[in-house]
Nucleic acid binder design. Structure first.
Lengths: 344, 344
DNA sequence: GCGACCAGTGTGAACGCTCACACGCCCGCA
DNA sequence: TGCGGGCGTGTGAGCGTTCACACTGGTCGC
């Protein structure tokens, strides 16, 4: 297989010039560039990526550690990150952590001296007290998700409180006053469930409405459709009137909608339903689901951008490291059929 | 940062010996190995992966080209492949092709001289006439999915015909005689839709039952829930009696179930429903969905194994390339609540 | 007791590229 | 005319590892 030296010989230039042309060095005469490219084409030369990585110390590969791709939210997030990365010529190595602590620790180890320039990490099993693990890492790292770890690490997160509050407000604006919550967790203290619940609380409080605990639908960590149906059933069975539902994710919402409809309740006429995440499913449910778009696309793009900037910083020695970023993606309600039009 | 030479000096051996120890070469005396490992620990040495890749020509990374991770089937497939690869110490670089021809062609180009040792490729946009593109590739390639391309390439596929036939038989065995099909495609000729339809046909034929075209529910390529509901509605609106449904994937089945239930039909008492793919959703739908498990897990593991074998073959020059493999994964019906018990 | 053989280790040469540096050349300005 | 500076290109030195091969010393068979 042809090497750079072969191309250089063929184009009658030095190896360095070939390298310059191929890595986009600006100061190459057009005629020279053309000669080199012609030689490349003639020999069917393709650059040896591994040699370039080895010598330059940069692989152009970033790691992505997420719990599980089978979950639509993470699958779609991965798609976004892959496309953002690709638009900058970066490849992505995905490391599923399986919701386990060991998996997440392993993902943190991978990049060391490896073929990965940086890591985008969506933690699910690490807890606050693991913060220190993130401080001593010698590679660029961007954290995704709602939990705040070490303040010395860049975070790109979503507006959980605002999102849940907006979802609740949407129903309140339409005159709904008996709004159930689907997806309450017993165990968690700082994750998305409690933050989203806080948003719900704030919305009610702002209107002087008391939280009715009978409206709280509990689930376990697996926010699946069946749990949504079950929690919805529990709430309805308590006899409390319900005219709205805020579900902590879309799968729960779809399950809740099933339960409501199987009891003859009309959506949105009798009960309005709002989900969270804006996964593809919510566009295809019946009725289609109003949901909170947490800015997944934005999160992906910003995370990749921040990571790129950090990767850049470690290259030019002049650049002083900027302070850690805490970026909150723009949240947005996507109104579909499952909620009534606002009445003001 | 420490290099192998530092370790060698510290352990008082040659660089080669350190290399031997670190790459698991068997002929190293225990005492020597211990000394080397002690030196490694003392210096906090970690091997430079990129140098190793460069020199050895192997990266330990395999590519995975799938249309889209956001689709549960592919997300779950990717999880399986990642875990299979990881159990052999391989990393996976995912290349989403976005259901486009260009995306798929790009994915085929990536591994050339790159940091990927081989490719697992699930084509969705390439057609039969693109076969020749796959013949001239100079890296190990395993194709996934139902379509047969070049006979010179390894394929790991699912039993589409058998699966659909078994799904249909399940309903026939329970005495159902008016079985609708959800997911018929106008455009396609050799893909999973037509193969699955063939299975349906065969099952009816074996019992001497004519296909009633009013029972065929048409969709576009996007096998989403809403299309399932729509196709189901079309069939029901035609006035034909229906006591069973074979849907070409689980999302379609869930949509169909919604439509049936909203018309007051009980599942499985009035209508039995079978899906295809066994995605996580089918375990959480209401009722839970009987479906065809196409052997996704097996497909993933076998694909990785075949790829590893091919990667091995190109290393030891002695090995003659084995003939291309066509592997059909074991298909299996997963009976859940949406189908009646067989009456024999 | 001699050579064949093999485990165990060392030597030196790549692998193909990028990087720091050097050098010539041309342009513009004094 | 002289000179500085930047553009365009070349030179040579590695980057850290693995690989082919060479070597040593002991074991085994006859």
């Amino acid at each position: 297989m042809a090497t750079m030296a072969d191309v250089a010989r063929h184009a009658d230039v030095s190896v360095k010039t070939v390298s310059n042309v191929l890595s986009g060095h600006p100061h190459v005469r057009d005629a020279t560039r053309d000669r080199v490219l012609a030689a490349v084409a003639a020999l069917g030369y393709e650059i040896n990526v591994t040699a370039r990585i080895f010598r330059s110390g940069r692989s152009g590969v970033v790691g992505l550690a997420v719990p599980e791709l089978g979950q639509p939210y993470f699958g779609e997030l991965a798609d976004e990150i892959l496309s953002a990365a690709r638009s900058h010529g970066l490849q992505v190595l995905i490391e599923p952590t399986g919701f386990t602590r060991e998996g997440e620790l392993a993902a943190l180890r991978v990049p060391r001296r490896g073929l990965v320039d940086g890591l985008i990490f969506s933690p699910a099993a690490l807890v606050q007290s693991d913060s220190h693990l993130l401080d001593s890492l010698d590679y660029p790292l961007v954290l995704l998700g709602e939990q705040m770890f070490s303040p010395s690490v860049d975070h790109v997160t979503m507006r959980n409180i605002d999102g849940a509050r907006a979802a609740t407000d949407l129903l309140l604006d339409a005159g709904r006053r008996h709004i159930a919550v689907i997806g309450m967790l017993h165990a968690e203290t700082a994750g998305s469930a409690s933050l989203r619940y806080t948003g719900y609380q704030q919305a009610l409080e702002a209107r002087g409405i008391e939280v009715d605990t009978r409206l709280l639908g509990w689930s376990d960590e697996a926010w699946h459709r069946a749990n949504g149906a079950r929690a919805m059933a529990d709430v309805l069975d308590s006899g409390v009137p319900v005219d709205g539902v805020v579900a902590f994710n879309d799968a729960l919402a779809i399950g809740a909608m099933y339960e409501l409809q199987s009891r003859g309740l009309a959506i949105p006429q009798d009960v309005g339903v709002v989900g969270f995440d804006d996964i593809e499913d919510s566009r295809y449910s019946v009725p289609t689901l109003t949901t909170v778009d947490p800015g997944r696309r934005e999160i992906a793009h910003v995370a990749v951008d921040i990571l790129r900037r950090r990767m850049q910083e470690r290259l030019d020695p002049g650049a002083t490291d900027r302070a850690p970023v805490l970026y909150l993606a723009g949240m947005r309600i996507v109104e579909r059929e499952s909620t009534p039009r606002r009445t003001g």
